[in-house]
């Protein structure tokens, strides 16, 4: 049983685009048998929310050097290139 991974999803509001990303991620990864927890935050809050997080997925630019992998993507919003990003996310989680 692998450890449950935590993904922090960031956008400008922690309401709109990050909800789309977080819910899609939960659904897609669950369908592939991967158990994840997602948390949402604003871009300005990432630094305070980073502890205990395995991966950050963001729809907007973030400051560098967070100490965990960061994937910036619009694929979950546009539907374009979604599969490639999912592969990238699974690799970043080292599963």
């Amino acid at each position: 049983m692998p450890m449950r991974k935590t993904i922090l999803v960031a956008c400008g509001t922690a309401v709109a685009t990050s909800t789309v990303v977080a819910k899609s991620l939960e659904e897609i990864l669950r369908d592939r048998g991967i158990d994840v927890v997602t948390r949402q935050c604003k871009a300005s809050e990432v630094a305070s929310m980073i502890s205990g997080v395995d991966l950050v997925v963001t729809t907007t630019p973030l400051p560098g050097n967070l100490g965990v992998p960061v994937i910036q993507t619009l694929a979950f919003l546009t539907g374009i290139g979604k599969e490639a990003v999912i592969t990238q996310i699974i690799q970043a989680l080292k599963l």
């Binding site: 956008c11 400008g12 685009t17 729809t59 630019p61 619009l74």
Partner: peptide
């Protein structure tokens, strides 16, 4: 999906939330 199916193949911009711009240092 409904709209993308009907949009055809010409050059299209995908309209998104400005939440994707907000992380830029100038905006913050």
């Amino acid at each position: 999906e409904f709209m993308q199916k009907r949009a055809g193949s010409r050059e299209i911009y995908i309209g998104l939330d400005s939440a994707i711009l907000i992380g830029h240092p100038a905006a913050i």
